[in-house]
């Protein structure tokens, strides 16, 4: 564990908690993409299957349980909670997320390190995580006016990705043989997807204005 990795995990945790807290306290999920949240639930469910097969640390297991629990709670709130579900922007959140799942699954079947059930699903989760934010970014573009919490959620997620890249650079430099092309490329693609959003986020921050994305 290095400082970049810890900072990455903490911003990731903060992003999910910000979102869950927002939904729980103000009983609204306006501006939040259910498609993205469902994709994250799939990402965590397929990546963390190794909870049952291997143990790394208490930290590792605890964080996995938190991410699983929070992502499925958010999906539950948005789908079934009687007040929250009414605030969901159903008409705007039209991204066909299954068109992301299938190519990722095919890619994982083709490009992986080992052809085992757990390894292919783990690789699939990396590919899917890279693109899972897309429905959320599309929804942000459509609604344009973004409340602070949704903006912070995406900002924190982007921060998490940035720190993970630093973590990989650090590990590459300090740990012998730390080379993971699949993880790195998927992670880099994911980080790049945030670049556009970050540009407008900082613009609005600099000008002290409410965040607005161009249509």
């Amino acid at each position: 564990m290095n400082i970049f990795r810890l900072a990455g995990d903490m911003t990731h945790l903060a992003s999910v908690l910000v979102l869950l807290l927002k939904i729980h306290t103000i009983k609204s999920c306006a501006g939040v993409s259910l498609k993205t949240q469902e994709l994250y639930a799939i990402v965590f469910a397929t990546r963390y299957l190794d909870i049952f097969t291997s143990f790394y640390s208490i930290y590792n297991t605890l964080m996995k349980l938190i991410f699983l629990g929070s992502s499925f709670s958010i999906v539950w709130y948005m789908r079934y909670h009687k007040t929250v579900r009414r605030t969901y922007d159903r008409e705007q959140d039209t991204f066909r997320h299954w068109f992301l799942v299938l190519p990722c699954l095919l890619l994982a079947l083709l490009i992986h390190e080992k052809f085992t059930f757990l390894e292919v699903l783990w690789t699939f989760s990396l590919y899917l995580e890279a693109v899972a934010i897309l429905p959320q970014l599309v929804l942000l573009q459509r609604t344009r006016n973004i409340d602070n919490l949704t903006g912070q959620y995406v900002f924190l997620l982007g921060g998490y990705r940035g720190f993970y890249i630093l973590n990989w650079i650090y590990r590459y430099l300090t740990e012998p043989h730390f080379v993971h092309w699949i993880t790195w490329i998927a992670g880099l693609v994911q980080t790049l997807l945030y670049a556009d959003f970050f540009y407008y986020y900082f613009q609005s921050w600099k000008n002290n204005k409410k965040l607005q994305l161009p249509a």
Binding site: R5, F67, N167, E175, V179, H180, T183
Partner: peptide
């Protein structure tokens, strides 16, 4: 190298 050192990441 077959040790899964990225599997301890989240």
């Amino acid at each position: 190298k077959l040790v899964d050192d990225t599997k301890d990441e989240l």
